[in-house]
Write a protein that binds this DNA or RNA. Structure first.
Lengths: 201, 201
DNA sequence: CGAGTGATTGACTTAGATCAATGACCGTGG
DNA sequence: CCACGGTCATTGATCTAAGTCAATCACTCG
């Protein structure tokens, strides 16, 4: 869901881009919150540091993802955000967001609805990870991502990225796709996969 | 986060409980939305049905969890909800929620903030699943769930349930705990685990 | 007291991770 | 215009950690 769908125009208008070099800190736990960010390019990791000083990764956000949405309702950030690669982030200012919410309940509702959809989608991805078999996992993904025709799955990024999203190594994923194609269950095209027949159970 | 923290009292006051027998349908895709539910007891699965008629599981909610929060902003449910065991669910009516939001912006904000925290927590659990090694996964969990003293993890439910939350078989989880205790990295008590020393990397 | 469940450990198997190598592309700098 | 470095896609070989099957003990609850 692109930010244009749920971010008030007034907020987008005052968004601020910032370039980060790999390893650079975006914010630290305890910093006063200034807003939430969209990752435009590169990757940013959210981490916490344990007693012994080692970093615990909470999440790694890639291009197109937003982070620290919850900071809108908190005085301070609850974790560290550090660039894992050279990156560009876009700041959506908290005061502007809150003002927009105040002015237009529709804006607040759009934001809430977006979070609700996000929760759904994350739960589904988590459920997917409960499937141990690579083949079943891929089937689950394909079944949930068919287009309107009920049999075509359009591939957004690279297969490698998709493998990561599925929690598989790219090798395992390639092999699984190859196996499914060999049995005739799927047909592969560039940038899409077509489901063919159902295997019984 | 218990519902009392973010659910307006006015909504809780008119909540409605419903008993479901295993296999009974709570709602179907396309049904007009009447509100969202809290699972009080048992388990409820959210599913979709694919072209070939088989059920695809989106999520399985257990006691204490809420489902279909996003239905507040939709006219119809986007999936099926079916009891996987005998269950009790509590309905929080959509009109009451929306009225409470209208009346008190604080209520709306509390709801949004809850969703934001939920997103955070789900992302973290997803990140955790990216860790393939059982031992590292358990370490990650423990590190993120220590109490204020930085070394004690309080166990809520059964170890079996925790194993499921971590995406491990209970056997693998027991063995991992046993191994960690054997190396002295953790100390186990009833209902709690204490971190001892750090293993270097 | 027997049924049901959690906790635990043993033995065995295997699917997927790991390590490795190759070919196809693609942008780019000389 | 082309060679070169980098990444993706793909496949082979190998290994092992975790899944699966199974059995036991301790509890708790009617």
């Amino acid at each position: 869901m692109p930010v244009t769908d749920w971010l008030p125009a007034a907020v987008r208008a005052v968004a601020l881009d910032r370039k980060l070099r790999s390893g650079e800190v975006l914010f630290r736990l305890g910093d006063k919150t200034v807003g939430f960010y969209e990752v435009i390019a590169g990757r940013v990791r959210l981490t916490r540091v344990d007693r012994s000083g080692s970093e615990i990764i909470l999440y790694v956000a890639g291009a197109g993802e937003t982070i620290a949405e919850a900071s809108l309702f908190a005085a301070a950030y609850h974790c560290d955000a550090i660039a894992s690669t050279d990156a560009v982030v876009r700041l959506y200012a908290k005061p502007a967001m809150l003002a927009a919410f105040q002015k237009d309940p529709k804006a607040a509702q759009a934001f809430t609805a977006m979070l609700g959809r996000q929760v759904m989608s994350l739960r589904t991805r988590l459920e997917q990870r409960n499937i141990r078999s690579a083949r079943e996992r891929v089937r689950h993904y394909l079944a949930l991502n068919v287009g309107a025709d009920g049999r075509t799955v359009t591939l957004a990024g690279t297969l490698k990225d998709l493998a990561a999203e599925l929690g598989l190594t790219h090798e395992a994923f390639y092999r699984t796709l190859a196996a499914l194609e060999r049995t005739g269950e799927i047909k592969r095209g560039s940038d899409k996969i077509t489901l063919r027949r159902r295997s019984r159970v």
